[in-house]
Amino acid sequence: MPMKNVKIIGIIFFVALTLNTFSQQIKVVDYKGFEPYIQKDNDTTYIINFWATWCIPCVKELPEFEEVNSEYESEKFKMLLVSLDFKSQIESALIPFIEENNLQAEVILLSDPNSNEWINKINKTWSGAIPATIIYNKNFYYFHEGSMTKTDLEKILTKNLIR
């Protein structure tokens, strides 16, 4: 086989492998698989944001969430973006969105049709509308249905981070 062909095949393999690794990064969980994320009992403060690529106010607030994520990188802090996109649209909508917007916070997909049961388990006051956000650590818990700004997040973090 000529050297050129080997190179091309090599590149194709490399690209395929990279793409494959990327799509594996979107973890898909049902409620049972998701529950541990909202029940951690340690020094880390978690911001858990429920969103979707088609949700206008979610997409609007994401850049501010991302800014907070990078600003608090050195703290005991972790941001998780829980996408409620349809499972069938991971490849067509979710991954392209993450790439285009260069999202740095971890994204997982919560796919569990029985939302009538798990919405209450996440928070009894939640109607199910998104965006919605949980901020918590072992000493503190906050839930908010609706948009949040960078200022909102910073205010809560500054007061409640465990340093």
Binding site: C55, P57, L84, S115, N116, G128, A129, I130, E145, G146
Partner: peptide
């Protein structure tokens, strides 16, 4: 009375 995920009213 039931709940579901949905788009927020704008």
């Amino acid at each position: 009375f039931t709940k579901a995920i949905g788009c927020s009213v704008k």
